[in-house]
Design a protein around this nucleic acid. Structure first.
Lengths: 109, 109
DNA sequence: AATAACTATCGTAATATTGCGATATACTTA
DNA sequence: TAAGTATATCGCAATATTACGATAGTTATT
């Protein structure tokens, strides 16, 4: 008990859910917004700006990275993160498809 | 500790995160897909189709409902759920804005 | 009124997430 | 090589999520 039964769902359902999950925290939304805003990649700036501990920021970055939403490259002593364009495009497509599949035409409840 | 610090984020960030969170489970994606597919609302059909216990389905429906994504009306002995068009539109707009704010023009990392 | 059918809620166990201090690791510079 | 800077990881505590059996509540049918 207490464990998501991924095996009973389709790959599409699991994929969508995992992408949503990666973005299901305000700190991670904030991080993504910040990365998008300053097109050029940032890193430890986030710690000062978001008001969360360094360990916490690092953990959120790790989650975004393992979901594939961002990528990081070591740049000297710091790490430069940026959006992963490939996954971002995929996200736009799948999400657009999913949300667009509802045509709010017929009233129901 | 162990509690999301919503107060340090913007309303927009918290809103997006909460909507994502509501959809961050394959069962809830499946439920939404099923509701969208059979335009007319369903209910206990989900229990038989998804392979999760009735209590579990009910819990997921409650989460989708409290996030505003779906709405339910009592129809005799059963409950009829359907998409909440207002929130769905809002979701489409906000998400489109958010995802579209990234223009994958300049290479970075 | 009694029974059946459907859904919601309660209680509980297992697992996951969130946040942070402390520490480890990696690179740079003096 | 030593010190400094930046990031990742470990370990832990608090809280949240997931799943389900049991049970309660509600409406329909007999």
């Amino acid at each position: 008990m207490g464990l998501t039964r991924s095996e009973i769902f389709t790959e599409e359902q699991n994929l969508l859910a995992s992408l949503f999950k990666a973005m299901a925290h305000p700190a991670r939304i904030a991080i993504l917004q910040r990365i998008i805003l300053s097109n050029t990649c940032i890193c430890g700036d986030l710690v000062g700006e978001l008001g969360l501990a360094q360990a916490t920021i690092s953990q959120h970055l790790k989650e975004l990275k393992s979901a594939g939403l961002i990528q990081g490259t070591i740049e000297g002593v710091s790490v430069c993160y940026c959006i992963n364009p490939k996954i971002w495009k995929l996200l736009e497509n799948r999400l657009g498809e999913f949300l667009g599949s509802y045509k709010g035409t017929t009233e129901c409840c």
